[in-house]
């Protein structure tokens, strides 16, 4: 299990028994591991002295958290108002068609996880896609496939 020591390292950065840090600790784990495993939620809860029940509740309440493993890249479709009125939902449909997986899903080959996200603050470039944090602005439905191909030129 190569991940186990990493989890312990992250957890150990927080003082034990400080329930207030739960949200932060879970965020750090997710940043490192891409999602929150059952093991990770349990470890965070135990370290900070909160119940697993509460840790699970927090992990499911806040949208920032994912409870299943993610694709190699994350494709975020901004659904802020500006993006919406400039056609974000048409883009979402196009992404679904292009990648074969829609918002909330991961492509079969594990390449992309697709998410609808709230405003990313780039309203001037609407509609906006983010591929692993790289921002693609003014994306038209007809060019989604080409833009994604260019952005996803990973291995």
């Amino acid at each position: 299990m190569p991940r186990a020591p990493e989890l312990n390292d992250i957890v150990a950065k927080y003082p034990p028994g400080k329930p207030r840090a739960l949200l932060h600790l879970l965020q750090d784990i997710q940043t490192a591991q891409g999602y929150l495993s059952r093991e990770a939620i349990g470890a965070a809860a135990q370290h900070l002295g909160v119940t697993e029940t509460r840790a699970f509740q927090i992990a499911t309440f806040y949208k920032a958290f994912h409870l299943t493993p993610r694709g190699r890249q994350t494709l975020r479709i901004c659904t802020g108002t500006s993006c919406h009125i400039r056609g974000a939902m048409v883009l979402a449909d196009e992404v679904r068609k292009t990648l074969g997986a829609g918002p909330g899903a991961t492509t079969a080959d594990g390449a992309f996880s697709i998410e609808l996200v709230n405003c990313v603050g780039a309203c001037a470039l609407a509609p906006v896609l983010l591929v692993d944090g790289e921002m693609l602005g003014n994306v038209h439905p007809g060019t989604v496939a080409r833009r994604l191909k260019r952005a996803g030129e990973a291995p």
């Binding site: 949200l23 932060h24 879970l26 965020q27 927090i58 309440f61 806040y62 949208k63 920032a64 958290f65 709230n118």
Partner: peptide, 8 residues
Amino acid sequence: IARGGGAF
């Protein structure tokens, strides 16, 4: 700093 978790 307290980081939010994505909840309006």
